[in-house]
Simulated scan of single mutants.
Amino acid sequence: MDAYATAPDGTPIAYQVRGQGPGTPLVLLAGQANNHHWWDGVRDDFHVDRTTVTLDYRGTGDSGKPDVPYSTGGFAEDVVAVLDALGVEQAHVYGTSMGGRVAQQVAARFPGRVGALVLGCTSPGGPRSVERSADVRRALVQRGDAGRDALVDLMYTPAWVAAHPGPYHTLGDPGMPAYARYRHLVAGHRHDAWDLLPRITAPTLVVHGSDDLLNPAANAELLADRIPGAQLRLIPLARHAYFEEFRETAGPLVREFLREHDSSC
């Protein structure tokens, strides 16, 4: 099912529902400046257990694209608007990269709406987080094929790229207006959930690739230490898109964690 929810400010938010599993529904949140296709490579893995819900962030995909400031807190309100439109009182939430930042906001600000929480390749943001290196920042600002190749290298290992030449769904929504891409960048940069993290009551699993340079793995330890009772799992050799390249490890890990918390939701 593809449909629209209405955000608090009136922006239409496109969402997509797939699968019919009996478990608690799972909201999947994509990375910065990406639409729901971010999850195309692994989404079906969850349908043995549950229905999945994705959305196109404002500024991406089929959602509205207002030229106003965006924030991870605002994206969280959009997620809740989707749950309201579906009549879902509580769902599990799995966010990766900037989606993990949005998931932090949802879990801290709307605790009753989150059954279990998975935070992948993400960061608490703010001055206490661990920033990517200057070399990575320089690589990312390159234009054209050089910039794309740098991003692919941060997402996947060379061996995986050689065996999987693409297309890749984790490199950004090509249909985004330039202003929306910039507003996503600012939203991610301004995220700081340090003071919110202790308020998270949902059972939480933090997952990260050990070789992630786009979002250094030290941030996973910060999150796990800051969120009460959180579990931490590092996937050896994995880069930023661990959930896709290392799906045979990450998928069962996340699925088992969610199953453990279905009965409490």
Rank of each mutant, 00 (worst) to 15 (best):
V118F: 02
D9Y: 04
R226V: 06
R143T: 14
A150L: 12
T72Q: 12
L26W: 00
T54R: 02
G166Y: 03
L117R: 08
D195E: 15
L222V: 07
V130Q: 10
G21T: 09
M98N: 12
R137M: 08
V118L: 05
V106A: 04
E77N: 13
P22H: 13
M155L: 14
E256I: 02
G126Y: 02
C265A: 13
A33R: 11
Q231H: 13
E244K: 01
A218C: 06
E89P: 01
R101M: 15
H189L: 13
G41L: 05
A159Y: 03
C121V: 02
D44Y: 04
A108C: 07
P174I: 07
R148W: 06
T122I: 11
C265T: 14
H189C: 01
T51S: 09
D56R: 06
E248D: 15
G125I: 11
A116E: 02
A217Q: 11
Y15E: 07
A220R: 03
T72V: 14
Q16F: 13
H208P: 05
C121T: 09
V17L: 12
R137A: 12
F257V: 04
R255I: 14
S97V: 02
A163D: 10
H184T: 08
G61S: 12
Q105C: 03
G175D: 15
F243C: 03
D149R: 10
L151I: 10
F75R: 12
V48L: 06
